[in-house]
Design a protein around this nucleic acid. Structure first.
Lengths: 220, 220
DNA sequence: ATCCGAATGGGTGCTGCCACCCATAAGTCC
DNA sequence: GGACTTATGGGTGGCAGCACCCATTCGGAT
């Protein structure tokens, strides 16, 4: 009897039972992959990592209590963090960038085919970045090219001040209110807002709100 | 050899491959249930119903092109509509009421346990309403009580048209875009928006966005 | 027959948002 | 020392959002 090679140990975090079923079904069918634990939210996933050792964490981007992105930030700060693969419902560039920013090795959609999910796992384990196929925009391609050439880019898009203003905008405050809150001029807030919209490629406050919620910066 | 009883024929509509995997895995394991077709969005589901005959349609509430709720409205208008079971990611009253309003027999969360999903299917086929367990708020309980006493529904605050406008506003579309989308006047959209703000007690589009996300009407 | 709600559309005016233009002080990087 | 970024602030103009006002049509309920 030949000894089987060690399998890639996977922690699966998603709040939807049905999704966990589907993913587990696909991964456990592979000879080199094994789902060794499941978590129903981000906090649970982080807690589980303190008890068991895994090679790869598959995180749903949007989960209650602690979103996948928030969890990923925490996991990335561990001493020997496992690889991370973000699972998302949204074919969305902003999300994708957020995921890479927090240290994920890949980003796959819940609408992916089986083989792509398996491929993403193996790619992530090898330490390479995986892009969900079929939806790779020029923006994403550029980003990955730079990444592969070793260029540093993880510069946070927004400055600290812009982050503050972003949050206040997303919380529904008017420009005037924000100015009062930060004790700066109305015009300065407008300037920050302009920069935020330009940098994130958004059009107005409504989109800022959705962005901030997606990114886990504020609660809905 | 005893003849097997006819299985309940199910159409499964969800845009996420992984969810379809999970649901099919669970249902096909039951002796009396059989997933005979799948669809990746609402339009596909409606189209499929023209070709094949099913007893039950399981619809994801949020799908591209045509949402599950929209599809359900269309299906309900068929000559002999199949039973409908809405599948949602959100433990959310607004969604639940919407589902019942369009004629669904049940509403289950994607986080349900296997048995509950199976139970929901069988309950729907018997023509009874199914409420996802564990998340039945007082509001829902009241509603079902009234329903069982034969009283008419307390009607959701917003009209169908207002719901449409609400979603489009929350998705970041401008008044002009919405007018074009719905092929109505700019002023009419403004009127709907005014009514929405008044009815929900909101002040502007930003708050509408957060409300819609909180209510689970749109994805962040 | 009447009344009401829902959907449609118009007018007017205020205010806020957003896109351009401009500048300066302080800090960092090379 | 210059180049660059960040944070600060001003001006101007256009258009959108929002709050009021108004009306018509249609269908269902009383």
């Amino acid at each position: 009897m030949t000894p089987t090679p060690p399998k890639i140990r996977i922690l699966l975090a998603d709040d939807h039972t049905l999704v966990r079923r589907g993913v587990r079904l696909i991964l456990d069918a592979e000879p080199d992959l094994e789902v060794v634990a499941e978590a129903a939210d981000g906090a649970e996933a982080v807690a589980a990592l303190r008890d068991i050792e895994v090679d790869l964490v598959i995180l749903d981007v949007a989960m209650p209590r602690m979103t996948g992105l928030q969890a990923a930030r925490g996991i990335a700060r561990m001493r020997t963090p496992p690889k991370m693969l973000m699972l998302s419902m949204h074919d969305n560039e902003q999300y994708f960038f957020e995921a890479l920013k927090v240290g994920a090795s890949g980003y796959v959609l819940k609408s992916v085919a089986d083989e792509d999910l398996v491929k993403a796992c193996r790619t992530a384990i090898r330490g390479q970045a995986f892009v969900y196929p079929g939806a790779m925009s020029a923006l994403v391609r550029d980003y990955l090219d730079r990444l592969n050439r070793g260029e540093s880019l993880p510069r946070t898009v927004l400055t600290e001040r812009e982050d503050e203003v972003l949050k206040l905008i997303a919380e529904g405050h008017s420009t005037r209110e924000i100015a009062r809150e930060l004790t700066i001029s109305y015009k300065t807030v407008e300037r920050h807002r302009e920069n935020i919209l330009a940098k994130l490629g958004l059009r107005d406050r409504t989109q800022v709100t959705r962005y901030a919620i997606r990114a886990g910066l504020i609660e809905p």
